[in-house]
Design a protein around this nucleic acid. Structure first.
Length: 603
RNA sequence: GCCGACGUGGCUCAGUGGUAGAGCACUCGAUUCGUAAUCGAGCGGUCGCGGGUUCAAAUCCCGCCGUCGGCUCCA
């Protein structure tokens, strides 16, 4: 599972790619499931059924979608099949023979699969009655499958060949292991992961809400969530000031024409909120305003507002710019995919000579930011153009230049990375930083992009040393990517237990009796004056309840204030991480908190 | 956008044809109490929205909206 963090678990849960044996087990399980499904649903057609990281799935074309009840029946049937100790046998056949047999079964999907296969064409049989086209490998017999070490998890829709234009199939997901203990541990960790889900914790901790009345994918940030946000913003702003970034602010809407020049309107209109037009004629003429899906055209206009000299470059415009994208309804979820979000955006206008160095400096900043946030589990992805696709602007030469610049950078930094053709932005390639959420789904956070195209489209210039007009190169970059998505990931990464500097409420004072509330408030006021987010629990409940509420609220530091403490000008400290720390003088508590804040460390 | 499941007070959930329930939270009262829930009372819901079936709908049917799991998409 993702996010095992640094707490070592006793039972290792191997991914399929770690073990050849598991690969066979999971693969054979998918065949057993397909066989069971066809036994129970004779009209079901099988398509593909691979192993995946922790299990397997199989896609079926069935007149009716499968239900939860069906899953139970299928599971039972699978156990029956396994207990028959059916041999799994491989058979090599000619293309013609395969065709003949498929026609005998009447399974058109298999025929389509066969077309894409290269020799040798192999079939795998489960006993006498069932076979599928398959490259293998599999276990020897169903005896090698433990009927107590698998489960069917969910049904979902999936398109044939992953193509939304093609048939809608029914996918059944299953998980399979070598031992029942592994299965139990897997399930336990899934449950744990659900508790870390930022949607759940966000609600429990009161960080953000969604309202039907506002709209889907449009989060509302509560005071607590906003404190978290602004702490992150302030942190990055400080880092950027140190690195020569200049702040800018730009509006949320602009004329359509601006995005025609950039190419957004032509390439990504479907992903933008509809145009605001004054009347039908204006709408038809495409004269109106749109919500911005990106900030770059605005920063470009600031660049263009004056004639630039090479002496000014690199110019680094930074803004926490909120953008709006009309994401497909089925894609929205929590904070990780929203329709309105804030990008920690900056656009660097550089001379071609400065490109490599500036790019490296940006990556250095991004990695420093991740380090400060204790984010360690990420992958670097080189998101390049898919040469087959027409969704990009610019010519081949420019793309090659941009992609090479990114490749040079990761090679210079000796970073681990993988290339992903087709993941580029429409105007240029990217170096993306990919993180996993609690449920192991991948999300892009930070990104750096090299762009020769927009400078061209907007006809950007600077005056070079020799007096000639030259074209700058742009670097688009966002270490967080989106503040919303970052916070979603952070919540799950920390399981809601933020380090003191990020915690919305950093210390809570708990008066043992209500008579001490006034004194506790005085102490809290001192802390607030020292830049600490301190609060007093004034509920009047008993201490046990106050502590319970503090723990549930995941307040990193609690301070019990009783008569003894008041007399000693001290606090009895209890932290989330370490429990009771004993009585500490107020001054020392404040000092330690201040240190924790500035160092991003623990109390 | 597609397939499926789900949608009951602020939160978590019970209630499957006969005019709405629990715990927590909240308010009030009593208690002034030392490291994860003090006791009692009270407030609070046109059961997502709109149609339909029925003598009667939270419950059955249809449409829409939203959430969730996938798929597709993702500047």
């Amino acid at each position: 599972m993702a996010n095992a963090g640094d707490s070592p678990e006793k039972i290792h849960l191997p991914r399929t790619d770690e073990s050849d044996h598991l690969k066979r087990i999971r693969h054979t399980f998918s065949h057993v499931m397909a066989m069971a499904v066809q036994k129970l649903f004779p009209k079901a057609q099988v398509t593909i059924g691979p192993w995946i990281d922790y299990g397997f799935y199989y896609d079926f074309d069935n007149p009716d979608p499968f239900t939860e009840k069906d899953l139970k029946a299928i599971k039972k049937q699978m156990i029956k099949i396994i207990n028959k100790d059916l041999p799994v046998t491989r058979e090599e056949v000619s293309r013609e023979e395969a065709q003949r047999r498929i026609n005998e079964l009447g399974e058109p999907y298999k025929l389509e699969i066969l077309e894409g296969l290269e020799a040798p064409i192999t079939l795998y049989h489960l006993g006498e009655d069932w076979w599928d086209l398959c490259a293998g490998p599999h276990v020897e017999t169903t005896k090698d499958l433990n009927p107590k070490a698998f489960d069917l998890e969910s049904v979902a829709g999936a398109y044939w060949r992953g193509d939304a234009e093609k048939a809608q199939l029914q996918r059944i997901y299953g998980t399979a292991w070598e031992t029942p203990e592994q299965l139990a541990e897997y399930k336990r960790r899934r449950e744990e992961a659900k508790k870390r889900d930022h949607r759940r914790l966000g609600k429990e901790l009161g960080l953000f809400v969604f309202a039907d009345e506002v709209g889907p994918g449009l989060p509302l940030w509560t005071p607590k969530g906003t404190l978290l946000r602004s702490t992150l913003e302030d942190f990055l702003k400080q880092e950027q000031v140190k690195r020569g970034y200049l702040p800018v602010v730009t509006p949320h809407i602009a004329r359509v024409d601006l995005f025609k020049t950039s190419g957004h309107w032509q390439k990504y209109q479907e992903d933008m909120f509809p145009m605001m037009a004054e009347d039908d004629q204006s709408r038809q003429d495409e004269v109106g305003f749109v919500m911005k899906p990106m900030n770059c055209p605005f920063h470009i206009q600031i660049y263009k507002s004056e004639l630039r000299s090479y002496k000014e470059l690199p110019l680094r415009y930074a803004e926490f710019g909120t953008v709006y994208r009309y994401e497909q309804s089925g894609e929205l979820g929590g904070l990780t995919r929203v329709r309105g979000f804030t990008v920690d955006d900056a656009h660097l206008f550089v001379t071609p000579d400065q490109l490599d160095d500036e790019f490296l400096k940006v990556v250095d900043l991004i990695l420093a930011v991740f380090r400060s946030l204790q984010l360690k589990n990420f992958k670097a992805r080189l998101s390049f153009r898919d040469p087959e696709s027409d969704k990009y602007i610019g010519n081949d030469e420019v793309w090659a230049k941009s992609q090479n610049a990114i490749r040079r950078a990761v090679e210079t930094l000796e970073m681990d990375f993988f290339e992903a053709p087709g993941e580029a932005a429409f105007y240029g390639p990217k170096l993306d930083f990919i993180f996993n959420d609690a449920l192991d789904r991948e999300w892009q956070l930070g990104t750096v992009q090299v762009d020769y195209n927009l400078p061209e489209r907007f006809d950007l210039e600077y005056v070079a040393e020799d007096g000639s007009r030259q074209r700058p190169v742009m670097i688009h970059r966002a270490p967080f990517g989106s503040l919303e998505r970052l916070i979603g990931i952070l919540i799950e990464e920390y399981a809601g237990d933020f380090p003191v500097w990020l915690a919305p409420e950093q210390i809570r004072l708990l008066p043992v009796t209500t008579e001490l509330t006034g004194y506790a408030q005085q102490v809290a006021d001192r802390m607030v004056a020292a830049g600490i987010r301190a609060a007093v629990d004034k509920s009047g409940d008993r201490l046990g309840k106050l502590i319970r509420n503090g723990e549930k609220g995941k307040i990193p530091v609690m301070a019990i204030v009783g008569a003894k403490e008041q007399e000693a000008n001290a606090l009895s400290i209890r932290t989330r991480a370490e429990g009771e720390l004993g009585v500490i003088p107020v001054d020392e508590v404040i000092e330690r908190l201040k240190t924790a804040l500035s160092s991003h460390g623990n109390f």
